[in-house]
Nucleic acid binder design. Structure first.
Lengths: 263, 263
DNA sequence: AGGAATACCGTACGGCATACGGAGTTGTAC
DNA sequence: GTACAACTCCGTATGCCGTACGGTATTCCT
């Protein structure tokens, strides 16, 4: 399940691919493909089978061309992954900022849910390590929208950035465990509940309740509630509420009060 | 930078490796290696060069044996990674729970910092996807300790589990960006600050400030403060405080007050 | 008409995990 | 003392991977 480290190619070359549509060549045979078609095929493949299954050969096969033809359009695989990322960033909805008393909290909740859904649609996103910002057009637009949800509520620019990153980080962490759960269930043909029921007795035999009383007690409660060692959905909801509460405390300390709607 | 999906081998076999020391064979030549030595060599290798550089050949070379000899001790690479993980889990300190008014917040802060440090020492941990709990001895002890920091403060068992997972999730997300930064700087020989200074003009040219005013404003403020597109350390501290504040609100709503020390 | 630019891609290289089976080593049973 | 079972060690081979290289076909401009 390889995490690919993004941002490894020449940044100028990658940025050119991201921002400038390819001009038709002045001479030579007409290109049979476009960068967009390659990226679309790669996304389909990664969506279906995950990043490890994304190979240049398979992308080329799917497009009906030789493997090496892809290198006419792209410098290599890292750049392809960068383009895939910025493309799916274009999918997140950017509704008009809700006004009224709900304010930033509802808007930030929507950002979180939108990104959660994005991770479900494209689980391979979580395997891409973005060490430096891509700064592609869609990522930029997405980030601008997300920052707007916490604009004008009393935070500094640094805090706005950190607040959005905090929420997105939680989305990643929670989505990762949900996605890994789904992947394992597909890979092993065994649900977490089945796994739990099958291996709980062995675990009970190995783990001494006297030595680890808290883990035992909590493990049993969680197992009874979810039929598994943990539940990604519960962790996701719980965490998001705590984070929003924590941000609310900060916002409040800055003296911000949500605007009262005019009746 | 491959993320390896853990928990793929036969769980019973993996659990046996995790919990039961290997008995000396009754017959046959004396083993030249032990599982522990293999795991230690693998950890050294991954610490130094990252998970992608962790190959069975290199581990074997480092130990002075043929590649296939490793398979006498371990079923395969996934199990090796599982063993590596549980081994480094054994490193986290588990101080006696601090008493006094600081209470759970100080203890949970310590848990967070301890795990942060662990991720710095063994960055490859972040590339291992733990879809199901390993349930090795060290992981169990670690989790028991971590749960104890939030025991008896009014939370349900499900909430205790979710609270610890929330903090650990934030550690992972924050550490990931810090680690990726360090990896990219080593890989490209260019610090974030250098990268930022070199590419900021190009970015300024591509991104229209009128179209993305918030991203531009925040980006400039962050760039001025950190000489980079973001600062992992700031995000880490900011996020941890918000999460602890959010948990405090929950704890308070349950009527818990920290014990007052007796003078 | 010819040359330049470009697309396409077959082949090859070095790397990976690991399946298979043979050779060597040791303790035990007779 | 000898045979054999159990075990370690590991060379070889298979089928993947990304991509470097260089040849060939196609198209436009001069």
């Amino acid at each position: 399940m390889p995490t690919v480290l993004s941002g490894r190619g020449d940044p100028a070359r990658t940025l050119a691919l991201l921002w400038r549509p390819r001009a038709a060549p002045a001479r030579g045979p007409r290109p049979a493909l476009t960068v967009d078609r390659i990226v679309a095929a790669a996304i389909e493949l990664a969506d279906a089978d995950g990043l490890p299954a994304l190979t240049m050969r398979r992308v080329a096969d799917r497009l009906g061309v030789g493997t090496m033809s892809l290198y006419t359009y792209l410098p290599g695989k890292p750049e392809l992954v960068d383009l895939m990322l910025d493309t799916v960033y274009g999918e997140t909805a950017r509704p008009v900022q809700p006004a009224g008393p709900a304010g930033w909290r509802a808007a930030l909740t929507q950002v979180a849910q939108e990104n959660w859904a994005l991770c479900q649609r494209h689980p391979w996103m979580l395997d891409v390590a973005v060490g430096r910002p891509l700064a592609g057009p869609n990522e930029t637009a997405k980030f601008d929208y997300e920052l707007r949800t916490v604009d004008g509520i009393g935070l500094t620019e640094l805090e706005m950035d950190a607040a959005v990153r905090l929420v997105l980080g939680h989305v990643s962490a929670a989505a990762r465990s949900a996605v890994e759960k789904a992947q394992l269930e597909r890979l092993t043909g065994q649900t977490h509940a089945q796994w739990w029921r099958e291996h709980a007795p062995l675990l009970a035999e190995l783990v001494d309740p006297d030595q680890f009383p808290t883990a035992t007690r909590v493990g049993e409660a969680v197992g009874a509630a979810f039929d598994a060692a943990f539940d990604p959905g519960y962790a996701w909801e719980f965490g998001l509420q705590r984070i929003l509460d924590g941000l609310a405390a900060l916002v409040q300390s800055r003296g911000y009060r949500p605007p009262v709607p005019i009746h």
